[in-house]
Amino acid sequence: MKTLLVRGYGPEDRIRLEDAAIPEPSAGQVRVRVRACGISFVDLLLARGGYQVRPPTPFVPGSEFSGVVDALGDGADGRLRLGDRVCGTRMGAWSEYICIPQSLAFGLPPQADLIEASVLLAPYLTSLYALRSRAQLSPGETLLVLGAAGSVGHAAVQLGKILGARVIAAASTDTKRSSALAAGADAVVDTTGDWKAAVKALTAPGGVDVVYDPIGGDATDAAFRTLAWGGRHLMVGFAGGEIGVLKSNLSIVKGASLVGVDARQAGERTPALMHALRTEVLALHGQGRIRPLVSHVLPVERFDEAAEKTNDRAGFGRVVFTFDDGARQDP
């Protein structure tokens, strides 16, 4: 089988496509023939040794996948059968075949698009957990989404509308803002200008109820200042490359809260909650109410090109690579 491998963290090391033996599922596992994998900025950061966690080398990177069950280990309870379409998130996803506990393979309808499914769970589960469980976003409230053309931002725009909010999307280009409007945003602001003033004008006289912030840096302070009394600022990540600094008196002046979002820890600490949210995400996708935005689909042999497109800050939408020659792909 084909697999992507990191052999070291030195300056000349990179993610390499190699051949490996097809694994056999252990008791309680299923083997998935992987058809498609998503690439995220965090995946690449971890693979290059720049993340807060550094797995011992060599290791298979990646975290998002979709595919078809092709073998069952002893003790499989019948929840999944051979030929079932599944998706999931796990470390070491970037291999043509993976063996995982049955509980980590989530069934999809027979007609499910495996390209979309490969980039479904991570952004939408994070965003639903953030908006519903952490911010308790209510119908009629105003939601400001920073980085609205990114994967989690795009998910937050769609889910914010489903939860009944008025959604304002912040993005840096006309194309990205048009994408946010197509995803359901009620209004957009240009982050290359005085977007804080624009948001305040759109939400006068009250302000924003919830900020969804995967960007960090200076944007965090500016967005916090748009909050209404009792507002909640969701700190999701730092895609901008810097950790923002807030003056603590702002939380008193606005009666507002800075709320951390860590879906990974939530999965470990509150598994029942995250299972319920994951089930809801899969149902919403099955109903056609949410759709990941996929910008490029490339074969695994063009992984370096796919990684380059993922790192392109001017681009938007998810980059997916496939192990399936029959999958739809970029020319």
Rank of each mutant, 00 (worst) to 15 (best):
E305M: 07
Q111F: 02
V281G: 00
A36V: 04
H296D: 14
D74S: 10
V152M: 08
L250N: 05
V189Q: 07
P23S: 11
R166I: 04
A105C: 14
G140T: 13
E308P: 00
M274Y: 04
R85E: 03
G28T: 15
R232E: 02
C37M: 09
V34Y: 13
D174E: 10
A112K: 01
T226C: 11
V145I: 12
L273C: 08
L4A: 05
P23G: 11
K200A: 12
E242C: 04
L104V: 04
P205G: 09
R134Y: 04
E18P: 03
L82S: 10
G267M: 12
A327K: 07
A201D: 13
I252A: 15
A306P: 02
G255K: 03
D19G: 13
L144D: 07
L246E: 03
V210I: 04
S40H: 11
S26M: 15
R81S: 13
G88L: 06
L131Y: 01
P123D: 08
V211M: 04
K196M: 10
L120G: 03
L46Q: 15
P110W: 03
S66A: 14
E305L: 10
H296P: 09
L137F: 14
E141K: 08
R225D: 09
Y51A: 15
R269T: 15
L282E: 04
Q29V: 05
I115R: 00
L293N: 12
A130N: 06
D218Q: 12
G50N: 11
V145N: 06
E305T: 15
R318H: 13
G286H: 05
F303N: 07
G288Y: 10
V199I: 08
L125S: 02
T310C: 12
E96V: 05
R313E: 07
G288K: 04
A76K: 06
K200H: 05
R269W: 15
Q265V: 09
D186H: 13
A170C: 10
G50W: 10
G206V: 01
R313K: 13
P139T: 14
E12G: 14
F316L: 01
L120H: 02
P139M: 13
N249L: 12
A117P: 00
G78M: 08
Y212K: 02
P110G: 05
T226F: 02
F303P: 02
V157G: 02
D113R: 00
L45E: 11
S151I: 01
V60D: 07
T175N: 12
V34R: 11
H285D: 04
Y212V: 00
V210Y: 01
E64H: 14
S127V: 02
S257P: 00
R132E: 14
L202K: 10
L159T: 00
A219Q: 14
R302Q: 15
R264T: 13
V300Y: 15
G260H: 06
F65N: 02
Y129N: 01
T203R: 00
A169R: 07
R35K: 14
I290V: 13
V259A: 02
G267D: 05
A256V: 02
E12F: 10
G140Q: 15
A306R: 06
G326E: 14
V300M: 13
T279E: 13
M235C: 12
S95R: 06
T57W: 09
S179V: 10
P214T: 08
A198I: 01
I22L: 14
F65G: 02
S248V: 15
G216Q: 07
D312S: 05
A198M: 05
A135L: 03
Q158D: 05
T142P: 05
K247L: 11
Y212M: 01
H285A: 13
W94R: 11
